[in-house]
Amino acid sequence: MTQPAPDGLLAAEAAHAHGAAQSVRQIFWRRFVRHRLAFGSLVFLVLLALASAAAPLVEAALDVDGNLVDLFNAKQPPSASHPLGTDDLGRDVLVRLLYGGQVSLAVGLAAALCAAIIGTLLGLLAGYYGGRLDGLLMRFTDGVIAMPILPLLIILAAIDLNKVGLPQALITSESASLYRIVFLVALFGWTTVARLVRGATLSMKTREFVRAAEALGASAPRIMLVHILPNVVSPIIVATTLSIGGIVLLESVLSFLGLGIQPPLPSWGNMLTSAQELIWDAPALAIYPGLLIFATVIAFNFLGDGLQDALDPRALQGEE
């Protein structure tokens, strides 16, 4: 008969496991900080998010209304009351940039998260069950990848919501265009995550701990969610982070074409749309949102590269 392990031995094993987990976290953080572009991008994105969240405070401090039209003060240069000047309708540019940051970042984060959830679910199902289900889901994924996404999104974004049976309260909501962009991008943006998760699941389901869980009678959903998913989360994080920049750019393109976020709700894309006819009279109105879009997309790409390097399991094992 097997004797129970002494309490001291159990405590030592628990401490060793805790120390190993802490060591992995420390190695990850050291590797991430060494990636200076990624760390700088993280700092920039955090500051941008905080500044955007503080838009109402900035609005109150400047004693302005970001949506108030004042044609007598249109296209004013920077001043103490308007640090970045005013637009063609006399609205404060700084406040609208911060509110636009809230919308553009919210679209990027929400759409990327929804796409990651869809892709993770399909990838787990395809990789774990295999066979015909795997073939069907992967051929469907290939079909979505083969579609010309931008023209398709332009067509879908132009559909009149009154003709699709949605509640009138949602259609007339100021945020209706935001919800539509998030839905459309998530509908077609899950393919990369699905393929990555499927490949990682195919590798994981042959591991001993998964075989042991199956032998003990664990259900398929429990095995996928408890045993496989935590071990494939790294590529999901990297792919999701990298996709946010592309989604922000895609939202800006649709808004620039007049099919994305609709005024009076500001976004960097529709601010560019308003500024395109004033490029010679007031070029700053196009430069500010353009620079923010460029910097945000580049920052998310650098952040994704840094996370990919820091979360590389081979690199983590090499530094332990």
Rank of each mutant, 00 (worst) to 15 (best):
P6Y: 14
L9C: 07
L10A: 14
A15W: 13
A17H: 14
A21G: 13
V24H: 08
R25C: 06
I27M: 02
R34G: 00
H35T: 08
H35W: 07
L37A: 11
G40M: 11
F44I: 06
L47T: 05
L50D: 01
L50W: 00
A54K: 10
P56T: 13
L57G: 02
L62I: 10
V64Y: 00
D65Y: 03
L68I: 09
L71Y: 15
N73P: 06
K75M: 15
A80K: 03
A80N: 01
S81Q: 11
L84G: 08
D87S: 02
D88G: 14
R96K: 04
L97A: 02
Q102S: 12
V103W: 10
S104T: 11
L105T: 11
G108Y: 00
L109F: 13
A111V: 00
A111Y: 00
A111D: 09
A112G: 14
A112I: 05
G123N: 07
G123P: 09
L124E: 11
Y128T: 00
Y128M: 07
G130C: 04
L136H: 01
F140P: 00
F140K: 02
I145N: 02
L152S: 02
I155D: 01
L156E: 01
A157G: 08
A158P: 01
A158H: 02
N162E: 08
L166P: 10
I171W: 11
E174Y: 10
E174R: 15
E174P: 01
F183N: 00
F188M: 11
T192F: 01
G199N: 01
T201W: 06
M204V: 12
R207M: 12
R207T: 14
F209R: 07
F209W: 13
F209G: 08
R211G: 06
L216K: 04
G217V: 02
G217M: 01
A218M: 07
S219H: 05
A220Q: 06
L225W: 11
N231P: 04
P235V: 07
P235M: 00
V238S: 12
V248K: 15
L249K: 14
E251Y: 13
E251N: 09
S255L: 09
G260W: 10
L265H: 09
M271V: 15
T273R: 15
Q276L: 15
A282K: 11
L285N: 02
Y288S: 08
L291G: 09
L292I: 04
I298S: 06
N301T: 13
L303R: 05
D312K: 04
P313F: 12
A315D: 08
G318R: 14
